[in-house]
Amino acid sequence: MTEITQSTGGLWRDALRRYMKNKLSVVAGVIIIVISFMAIFAPWVSPYHYSEANFDAAWQFPSWTHPMGTDSIGRDYFSRIVYGARISLIVGFVAQMISLLIGVPLGAIAGFKGGKADFIVMRLVDVMSVFPSLLFAILIMAWLGSGLSNVLFAIGVTGWVGVCRLVRAQFLSLRASDFVRAARSMGASNVHTIVRHMLPNALSPIIVGLAMGIPQAIFAEAGLSFLGLGINPPTPSWGQMVSSHLPNVIYYWHLALFPVFMIALVMLGFSLIGDGLRDALDPRMNE
């Protein structure tokens, strides 16, 4: 038991050391940490409250008093961007966690066990995955109504299928690989084989999927907002800000640019972190 813990600790320490070697990933990590801090400490970071309207100062371009300008009812856009980080990160993380929590165990069981378990899981996956996801999400939103928890539910419940298939596919091919066969022939238990041998080897696509999935969830929220099925105002989310203000880009450029930029930044951050983690966690990596 102690041996396993020690070796696991060593594995993670090694991974961290390898991760820190990759400068881009470190920068990305810093960006995400900064944005997360911004989200957590929004009331202290932002100069105004996100819903504080100053009607006399509407439609202002960026200036010293309003570094990102003001929106159509004179709310400080920088403050809204800062508060928007909260919603967008919550949507990204929580929706992705819902997907992972459903998808990974189901996929692992299906891929490892095969047979009846695989059959049942795959039919469940089939039913879920043959639904056009946008149609399904819109139907759910139309049914439940707008609001944060419903958005999380709609995105999460349609998102786990991809993860599940990915994990299953990985497990299918890993199951046939030499080291798993070796482990099993040495009498390792199923759980031990899955957790110790297969999951770490299946981790990299999961992590890449996660790195892609978080911004995609942020985006899905933007899409729902675009169709009027997102989060209720005045709570700002970047997706909602993009969809509201995109047509304004031809003159009041700041209203469209900043939220698009922030989404791009977060996405870039998660992608690079994903790359770094993938390289760092890969047990076959020597250098």
């Binding site: 911004p215 995109l246 880009v249 870039l268 992608s271």
Partner: peptide, 20 residues
């Protein structure tokens, strides 16, 4: 890095923004 950036832009910037 260039490819990563390009690929990221492809997913990040909403298709309606690129279209416009």
């Amino acid at each position: 890095y260039g490819t990563t950036m390009l690929a990221t832009l492809g997913i990040t910037v909403p298709s309606f923004a690129i279209s416009i």
